[in-house]
């Protein structure tokens, strides 16, 4: 029962996030979606990741959005979409419908018993490679973000490129 309510909540929040006119509001709806997803995770027994999702998805990412929207500014963009909306509707419904039609019945199984902990163990020793790669990803992400956002310095091209090797 809870699950159905949360399911509806998730879908409504997500839909509001893409529909609401102001970006800031959309970011907040996204945070709401994230929070509900975290609850759903909790109900699945994934306690640790639910917390992380709550803090990162609902917290950190929202903060980032707010920052970005502050810098970039709310901007009225015509609601008119660039491709015909019916086409978008139909194609998404067909694609998702195909998936749902085929996949959902196959998931009609018992949830299974909840295994005990072991998340830390799995993360720190089992999936070590993924973890190392996460640090690499963060490093790459930070480098890229710094490069993208840094203010333009005095244009060096003209001075440096004179002396071609």
């Amino acid at each position: 029962m809870w699950h159905i309510i949360i399911l509806i909540g998730i879908l409504v929040c997500a839909f509001q996030a893409i529909r609401s006119e102001r970006l800031l509001v959309a970011a907040l709806w996204l945070a709401g979606t994230s929070a509900l997803v975290a609850i759903m995770m909790y109900l699945l027994g994934a306690y640790q990741i639910a917390v992380i999702e709550l803090s990162v998805g609902a917290g950190l990412v929202t903060v980032l959005f707010v920052f970005a929207i502050n810098i970039a500014g709310e901007e009225p963009i015509p609601a008119l979409s660039l491709i015909p909306k019916p086409l978008a509707w139909v194609s998404v419904i067909v694609a998702v419908g195909l998936l749902a039609w085929q996949i959902l019945p196959l998931f009609d199984l018992p949830l299974g018993s909840l295994q005990g902990a072991g998340f830390e163990e799995m993360l720190w020793s089992g999936r070590k490679v993924d973890l190392y790669l996460q640090t690499a990803l963060i490093f790459a992400g930070v480098l890229s973000m710094v490069a993208l956002l840094s203010e333009e310095q005095t244009h060096k091209v003209s001075t440096h490129k004179e002396d071609n090797v």
């Binding site: 480098l143 310095q153 091209v157 440096h160 490129k161």
Partner: peptide, 27 residues
């Protein structure tokens, strides 16, 4: 790129990411 990227801003980030990318493809 020694010549092509010479004097570009963020040259060091370019090379670091290039190395990372090559590493990821090997992986």
């Amino acid at each position: 790129s020694f010549a092509y990227m010479k004097g570009e801003e963020h040259e060091e980030k370019f090379y670091a990411l290039l190395v990372l990318m090559i590493g990821s493809i090997i992986g």
